[in-house]
Design a protein around this nucleic acid. Sequence first.
DNA 1: TTAGTTTATGAATATGTATTCATATTGTCA
DNA 2: TGACAATATGAATACATATTCATAAACTAA
Lengths: 203, 203
Amino acid sequence: MTQPSRKEREYLRHRGEVLEAALMLFARQGFHGTSMQQIADAAEFSVGTLYKFFPHKEEIYKTLIEETADRFHAGLIAALETPGDEINKLQTAVETKIRIFLDNLDRVRIYFAETQGASLNVKTGLDAAIKNRYNDYLERLSAIFAAGIKKKIFHKQDPYLLALAFDSLSMTFLVEHMDHPGRHPFDAETILEIFLQGASFKK
Amino acid sequence: MTQPSRKEREYLRHRGEVLEAALMLFARQGFHGTSMQQIADAAEFSVGTLYKFFPHKEEIYKTLIEETADRFHAGLIAALETPGDEINKLQTAVETKIRIFLDNLDRVRIYFAETQGASLNVKTGLDAAIKNRYNDYLERLSAIFAAGIKKKIFHKQDPYLLALAFDSLSMTFLVEHMDHPGRHPFDAETILEIFLQGASFKK
DNA sequence: TTAGTTTATGAATATGTATTCATATTGTCA
DNA sequence: TGACAATATGAATACATATTCATAAACTAA
């Protein structure tokens, strides 16, 4: 395919500016709390112009969510490909998750609103698209746990539950950090320790 | 105070029926996806009559969320009061959480939409009321971990992080169960094992 | 049974905002 | 520079639905 022309590049840049403005607003006010007028003002376009880029409001939101799901999925999958043993892979996975999360706070907010809340998922079928990517990640993580169990690195448990437990632990700490930065400091090692060693001493 | 009259009792019963109908709809369609007309139809009242019980739609939602927060909070706090050592308390806490959760699936759905998503919390200040109760629970749980650490039952870690980790683990498994019942069976013991022993063998 | 009172009803109103489109503005090329 | 095309604008439109309130229905007590 050929180079995009100046005009095309400009169109894409403007479209990106609309997305950025919308992201900020959706993250702070939610989908229903944000009007097209607000997005237009923030992006320094008229409402009419927004419709040059997107057929309707939902499409803006949907685009953001899907971009986000893609970005997160790609990053996490790559992390699991780290060479080394299973513990190594987990370590990279946590570190990556922390980095991606902190670099994309606004995206995390709308992603959560969509996956946990009941904003639009039912209507738009966004749900399925997002969940597929997350399931794919969890399946790969499960495979790592399954391998680790075979090697007697991990206790025998349903690998999927271990994957869920592992992923939710980092998620929880990150959300805590998002709400109260610095109140309960932790790093990748804290998460790994708690997850791998457990809370109690062996009896 | 005196007995409520027949009329008062009937009023309260009808109000309860409205709440029940609204709960079902909000859980399936979210706040914005549910109209007053739908609630009226489901409760077998006219729209006008709904306004005899609640000044506006938000108040119905708010009432449901607050009822839910109270119910969950009371149950969980009571569980932490269990006599016995720290491990005992955790065991009862998980069992209670599982029971409350499974007995109140619709309430769990709207509670999540409200706490995780960005439905109304900003506008109504619901957020603060809910979070206070949850924080209170987490603080009490932290105290248990702090005590357990002093007794050398638990590893030395920020007790609040342990509380978060513990609570989110059961939450995660329950949500998985809600989405795919039976796919990855678990019980209170599974949760305790993973949390207390950790995933890996000691090195 | 009926006059008076209370309560329920749902059509009409009010409001907010997503979307459209006639017009203005900007850009292009001779 | 001016005529034409492409693009941007935002006031007007369309629509959805929360809320109101004049009226109907149900109830109460003499």
